[in-house]
């Protein structure tokens, strides 16, 4: 259905998804017998031993467990950064275990990542860091959103930085920002391409308690206000109460 000129965009400001489209009826993530095995020298390590679970759209999911439980492996599979050894995985209705699926393009369009270590480019300003994911996949190198949004990407980057509370830090470089501020930039960066799934791997692992709460509140607000599906991996069991749903991983299995 074409949108009518002059009518305000009914899509969500963060995720850009329309809650009434039929695709929103698919679960955000569907895993069946998901196995991931690594080789470390001669040793075979089974990081995930056959996970079955569904994550509905709009959930705010905590993936908790001790280190080595398989949280990061699970997030990497859901985030399309890795392929499972066995089992079936559907992300936002696409079977990503099928051969020939281009993971990078899917990832660019649908998934936002936030890491424990922020991974901001030290040479770029906060705004430029947020814009970075918009330059991939273009032949001529320009800031343009993966979903083909015609609005200026720069404008959106600034709006997102304001949204995460960094409207006064647009031109600062990472070295001039605090840990909490850097993580906020990383969150804004994860949102620039209007993802439908936001994944955060230990996003508060490097932050003090106050800053940690600030980031969690931000993620919660994004989930609550825009229906964005958010998955947070953490080993901090005290955070469990913040999530709408908790998936507990133990030794590669859902506990």
């Amino acid at each position: 259905m074409d949108r009518i000129q002059g009518v305000k965009d009914s899509r969500n400001p963060v995720s850009g998804q329309n809650p009434r489209t039929p695709e929103s009826l698919n679960p955000a993530v569907m895993a069946r017998g998901l196995v991931r095995t690594y080789r470390r020298g001669a040793e075979k390590i089974q990081a995930l031993k056959g996970i079955d679970l569904d994550i509905k759209r709009g959930e705010f999911v905590g993936v908790v467990g001790h280190s080595g439980a398989g949280k990061t492996t699970f997030l990497n599979l859901v985030g399309l950064m890795d392929r499972p050894t066995a089992g079936r995985l559907e992300v936002l209705g696409t079977d990503v275990t099928r051969r020939g699926v281009r993971l990078d393009a899917l990832r660019r369009k649908n998934i936002g990542f936030v890491f424990q270590e922020f991974y901001l480019m030290p040479t770029l300003t906060a705004t430029e860091n947020v814009l970075l994911p918009t330059m991939w996949g273009k032949a001529n190198g320009e800031w343009r959103m993966a979903n083909g949004d015609s609005r200026g990407a720069g404008q959106r980057a600034m709006e997102l930085l304001k949204l995460v509370g960094l409207g006064h830090r647009l031109t600062h470089k990472p070295s001039e920002l605090s840990g909490g501020e850097m993580q906020r930039v990383a969150v804004a960066r994860a949102l620039i391409n209007r993802p439908r799934l936001l994944l955060a791997d230990e996003p508060t692992g490097n932050l003090d308690t106050t800053t940690r709460d600030g980031i969690l509140n931000l993620l919660l607000a994004l989930n609550r206000d825009s229906g964005l599906t958010v998955m947070v991996a953490t080993h901090d069991l005290s955070l469990e109460s913040r999530f709408t749903r908790v998936i507990r991983l133990e030794d590669g299995n859902v506990a």
Partner: peptide, 16 residues
């Protein structure tokens, strides 16, 4: 290496 990994995580392709 990690920075490049991050670029790919952010949707950068091999070609990028």
């Amino acid at each position: 290496t990690r920075e490049i990994g991050m670029m790919k995580a952010m949707g950068g392709s091999r070609g990028d």
